[in-house]
Amino acid sequence: MTDKELEILRIIEEDARIDLNTLAKMTSINEEEIKAILKKLEEKKVILNYSTVVDWSKVPQAEQVTAMIDVKVTPKRGVGFDEVAERIYRFSEVQALYLMSGAYDLQVVIEGKTMQEIARFVSEKLSSIDSVISTTTHFQLKKYKHDGIVFEEGEEDRRIVVTP
């Protein structure tokens, strides 16, 4: 990976909506070369998606429940955790899945409309997988920061600073 490619990746990771003209000025690379670099990185699956961070708590009709589920599994000979991970990430409710160190092997992040919907996912889908030994579910109560973006920053302190 070239320094130019790394520089572009760092910039678009912060703002995927940045226009090519601005990106070209920031990197001193012409727009056509930027397009070619972005296309190459997309084809190589370095850039997987361009996404938006939404504060869903401000959209009452779209509120959802997010849960992090710690999962202990029995790895299979020859494929380790990959086979069971693939079975889990294929469920539509699964937003993210991570191989973890520590007491649990996998962490599954899921979203649902209600806590009962998540409970049904755990009991009917996740726990029924042969390799799954145990689960521990944690419900997200409030989001303070996600992908480097702070939610609901406090208002600026408008008091006059008084020093002796």
Rank of each mutant, 00 (worst) to 15 (best):
E86H: 12
A85Q: 01
I149N: 08
A62H: 08
T74P: 01
F91Q: 00
Q64Y: 15
E124A: 13
L9V: 03
F121S: 04
L141M: 13
R158C: 09
L6R: 15
I129Y: 11
V79T: 15
D147Y: 14
D70F: 07
I11R: 11
L23H: 12
D130K: 14
R90S: 05
E7I: 10
Q116S: 13
P75V: 13
Q107Y: 11
M100V: 12
E63A: 14
T27F: 05
Y98G: 03
T2F: 11
K125R: 13
R159W: 15
S28I: 05
Q61L: 14
F91T: 00
D19V: 11
E33R: 09
R87T: 03
F139L: 10
M100I: 05
K25F: 07
I133C: 03
L97Y: 04
V71Q: 00
L20K: 04
E13N: 15
M115T: 08
L97G: 07
T27C: 15
I110M: 12
M26R: 11
V84K: 04
I149K: 14
A103R: 04
A119V: 04
A24F: 01
V53S: 07
T135D: 02
Y89M: 01
A16S: 10
A62W: 06
A96W: 04
V108P: 03
I47P: 01
S101N: 09
Q61P: 11
F121M: 09
T22V: 09
G102Y: 10
E43I: 03
V94I: 10
L41H: 05
I18V: 08
V65S: 11
A16T: 04
E155A: 11
E117H: 15
Q95F: 13
A24R: 01
A24L: 02
V161I: 14
V122A: 05
K4I: 04
D157E: 13
E117T: 12
K143S: 06
V84G: 05
N21P: 00
D147M: 14
S51Q: 08
V108Q: 01
D157Y: 12
K76P: 00
G102P: 03
A67I: 00
I149T: 01
E117Q: 15
